[in-house]
C-alpha cells in the first residue's frame, strides 16, 4: 500500500471507531457515511488526504 493509501487506512480505522460507516469501494476509493452525509474520497496526493481529513473533522471526527 502506498503512503496515501496507508494514511487513508489509518483515518478510516479511527473514523469507524467513532461511529462512521466506512467502506473501501475500490482499492483507491473510500466511502464514509454518517447520518445523511456521504463522502467518497479518491485521494491521489497527500493534499487530497489532508482535504479528506479536514472534511471529516468538520463532520465531527475527533482527531487529536
Amino acid at each position: 500500500m502506498d503512503t496515501v493509501g496507508e494514511a487513508m487506512a489509518v483515518i478510516a480505522e479511527e473514523a469507524e471507531r467513532q461511529g462512521f460507516q466506512v467502506r473501501q469501494t475500490r482499492s483507491a476509493m473510500w466511502h464514509f457515511r454518517k447520518g445523511s452525509d456521504n463522502w467518497i474520497f479518491a485521494p491521489r496526493s497527500t493534499l487530497d488526504v489532508v482535504d479528506a481529513l479536514s472534511m471529516l473533522i468538520s463532520a465531527g471526527l475527533d482527531w487529536k
Partner: peptide, 12 residues
C-alpha cells in the same frame, strides 16, 4: 473516479 478527488452527497 477519474474526475473528482472528493464526492460528498447529503441525502436530505
Amino acid at each position: 473516479a477519474e474526475s473528482a478527488a472528493v464526492v460528498h452527497y447529503h441525502s436530505e
